[in-house]
Design a protein around this nucleic acid. Structure first.
Length: 350
DNA sequence: CGCTCCCGCCAGGTA
DNA sequence: TACCTGGCGGGAGCG
């Protein structure tokens, strides 16, 4: 709320990155098979349109696969290495390692070379679609996301500038307006991947130009993005956007005169939804918050760790402090819900 | 003020 | 033909 009592709008809270992070918290579990788009939209408190963005990008690296209308299946991080290596092979064949400094004729060649995107989803992509559909597919988030990944996998340089990615993935000879649109999509994709710790946003030291660094599947598997803010591990770059540590999707909207129109489709879009941590947190052992009846030394350790973390926090920006607190609160909530559940189950048995 | 990217319109596809 | 899908670009938020 601002001083006038309006719900304040925070762009970051509504970002695709936060959404994807919450999406993963919700569905990144072994017992998840099918993901309903309506279900996801409802639980995450966003309109369906945004879910399409998320699943398209996740599908590009094989985390989910389209099963049919309104339904995706959760494939999981387990197959990520395989998907990435397939993308790499594909990219190598397509010469993605060479980021072209594009001239018009080069671009034509480049376009010819990367006609068919990798089929990580066997079902609908099989039958040769119409040329019209091809051109649509060529522009899709899915393809753009795959090509973006290929760029990292096939390049020796682990830093890729936004400029470089733009030149490599988009036909820079097109009109500027078209370019602007495509670059927006690159931002979307980059945000999603950085929220997953697949890449991180940084910049070229000399030029300060924005750039992305590949962190890769290993970073994801080591990552605690489901349970802890990356902020604390990354004090070199306090300005870096950190996703997944905020509760997203409050009903505050960007100011626009009439938001009611679209609610015909998405009745639930304004619901304030907080991801239920007890559903999401599949790795209680990894929780940064420790509770228990352990001995005094254990307790001291916990306190020391806690104090150390408070000291660490002091070095951060206020935004990151808030993000950290948000995360801790969610963790606590999840922990106590879990405890309550098990006690309740125990009570029921007796 | 330029960069970033959310938001939702609406065209085209599908059941 | 109602509903699903997702490209697209306006324009708001932010540094």
């Amino acid at each position: 709320m601002d001083s006038l009592g309006r719900q304040s709008y925070s762009r970051k809270e509504k970002s695709l990155g936060v959404l994807v992070s919450n999406f993963l918290k919700l569905y990144n579990r072994d017992d998840v098979d099918l993901i309903g788009l309506d279900d996801a939209a409802g639980k995450l408190g966003v309109e369906r349109r945004r879910i399409y963005d998320v699943v398209n990008i996740l599908e590009s690296i094989g985390l989910v696969a389209r099963r049919g209308k309104n339904q995706y299946s959760w494939k999981g991080f387990g197959q990520l290495p395989r998907a990435l290596s397939e993308l790499k092979d594909e990219g190598m064949r397509e010469k993605f390692g060479i980021i072209p400094c594009v001239t018009k004729s080069e671009m034509v060649l480049y376009d010819q070379v990367r006609e068919e995107p990798l089929k990580l989803t066997p079902d609908d992509q099989e039958n040769s679609p119409s040329p019209k559909l091809d051109s649509k597919k060529e522009k899709s988030l899915w393809v753009l996301a795959q090509n973006f990944v290929k760029l990292f996998l096939c390049s020796d340089d682990d830093l890729i500038t936004l400029d470089g990615a733009t030149k490599a993935l988009l036909n820079v000879s097109q009109d500027p307006m078209n370019m602007r649109t495509k670059v927006r999509r690159l931002y979307d994709i980059a945000n999603v991947f950085s929220s997953m710790n697949l890449i991180e946003k940084t910049h070229i030291p000399e030029t300060r130009k924005p750039a992305y660094r590949w962190l890769g599947a290993k970073a994801i598997s080591e990552s605690r993005f489901l349970t802890a803010p990356a902020t604390l591990c990354d004090r070199n770059e306090p300005k870096k956007r950190v996703f997944g540590t905020e509760i997203t999707n409050f009903n505050a909207k960007r100011n626009k005169t009439d938001c009611s129109k679209d609610s015909k489709h998405y009745g639930n879009q304004n619901t304030c939804s907080v991801i239920k941590q007890e559903q999401c947190d599949s790795k209680p052992a990894e929780k940064s918050f420790v509770v228990g009846t352990g001995g005094a030394s254990k307790k001291n350790n916990v306190e020391n760790n806690h104090n150390q973390r408070l000291e660490d926090l002091e070095t951060l920006s206020s935004t990151h402090k808030l993000q950290y607190c948000n995360h801790e609160l969610i963790g606590l909530l999840g922990h106590y819900t879990e405890t309550w559940r098990s006690w309740h189950a125990e009570f029921d048995r007796k």
